[in-house]
Each structure stands twice: as structure tokens, then as C-alpha cells.
């Protein structure tokens, strides 16, 4: 009995376009909900989690010496052969890299170099804004790698950004970690 009522109700609904009206009401509701767009790079940008594999950087030890021992393991394991290490012996008699170049144009950011390194000298940071008009600029040398920002303690937040990347874009973050993507997405 309820079934017939149901089907009659459905038919009445169809006659008055209940389903179409439902859809319209839903989209109307969405129209006045907050948007989830992140206006990168005009206003804000996404700071990745620390597990993110971005631009490489070389670490220093406590004395401020480069950690790398120029064992070339990273160059060996690299699937793209994009690391080039030339060792030399410094004043203290330690084996250090004279030349350490990563061709980030060819790098696939697999992170294997980080895993292979026995001295914990190389790692992939969170920086992802290093596009360039020339692929030659993408070959990064030792000193540049040492100067690159290391891993940030926080991640997953939204920080303010400016269009002009020449200036310092990282501003103190309002929302340090775990930006809630679902916050503005209504699920009904």
C-alpha cells in the first residue's frame, strides 16, 4: 500500500518538477557558500607538509661544516643521473664535495638521494617555487644548495603570499598546520 502511495507521490513530484527544484535549491545554496579557492599567488599559498619532496638542500653539522662526505651514493642511486659529485680533501683531511650539482630540470623528486645518503647530508625540502626561463638556471650548485631553506617544522598551512616572488614571500602564518579543506565544502 505504501508502495502505491510512494509511486503516486513520485508522480506528483515529477509533475511539479520536485527533483529539478531540489537541484536548483542545492546550487542556489552553494552559490552563497564560501568558496574554497586559494588565490595563489596573489593572496595566499599552500605550505606543504614536511614530508613533501620539494627542492633539495644540503645540511651542515654543528660546526657549520657541510655534512656531505662526497661518497657519491646519491649520484649512484639517482634514477635520472642528475647529481654530479666531485670529491676533494679539505684542510682537516676530510673528504668533502668540491662540486655538487643537481640538475633539477631532470630530477623527478623521488627522494632516493635522501634515503641513500649515509651522512644524512641531503634532503628534500618544502620549497616548490623555483621555475625558470632557462633550464641552465635549474642546475643548482653546492653553495646554493647549502643556502636553500631546510625543512620547516610546520606544514599543511595556508600562508599569505604576494605576486612578486622576488620579495620574501613567506609571511608568518595564521593557520600553522592542517588546513581544513573540508571546512567550506558542504556535504548534504
Amino acid at each position: 500500500m505504501s508502495r502505491t502511495q510512494n509511486s503516486i507521490g513520485t508522480w506528483i513530484g515529477w509533475t511539479f518538477f520536485a527533483d529539478l527544484a531540489n537541484g536548483l535549491a542545492l546550487t542556489f545554496g552553494y552559490m552563497f557558500s564560501r568558496s574554497v579557492t586559494m588565490q595563489y599567488p596573489d593572496k595566499e599559498k599552500w605550505l606543504p607538509y614536511s614530508r613533501y619532496r620539494g627542492h633539495h638542500f644540503l645540511k651542515r653539522d654543528e660546526e657549520g661544516e657541510i655534512k656531505c662526505v662526497a661518497c657519491e651514493l646519491c649520484a649512484r642511486i639517482c634514477p635520472c643521473y642528475c647529481i654530479e659529485v666531485v670529491p676533494y680533501e679539505d684542510e682537516k683531511g676530510n673528504r668533502r664535495p668540491l662540486k655538487f650539482e643537481i640538475d633539477t630540470a631532470r630530477c623527478l623528486f623521488c627522494g632516493l638521494c635522501e634515503d641513500a645518503c649515509p651522512a644524512d647530508a641531503i634532503a628534500l625540502g618544502q620549497q616548490y617555487e623555483f621555475s625558470s626561463f632557462s633550464s641552465r638556471d635549474l642546475v643548482i650548485g653546492r653553495d646554493d644548495l647549502l643556502a636553500k631553506p631546510g625543512k620547516a617544522a610546520m606544514g599543511g598551512g595556508v600562508v599569505a603570499a604576494r605576486l612578486d616572488t622576488k620579495k620574501d614571500v613567506l609571511v608568518e602564518t595564521s593557520e600553522t598546520r592542517g588546513y581544513n579543506w573540508w571546512r567550506n565544502i558542504r556535504r548534504t
Binding site: M31, S33, S35, V36, T37
Partner: peptide, 14 residues
């Protein structure tokens, strides 16, 4: 703009 806001985007902004 309407398309954007219905889909929770902002539409043209720049």
C-alpha cells in the same frame, strides 16, 4: 562568476 560561485570557486579574479 555565477558558474564559479555555484561550484564554490571564485571565477575570474585577476
Amino acid at each position: 562568476k555565477i558558474a564559479g560561485h555555484i561550484q564554490q570557486r571564485l571565477g575570474p579574479m585577476r
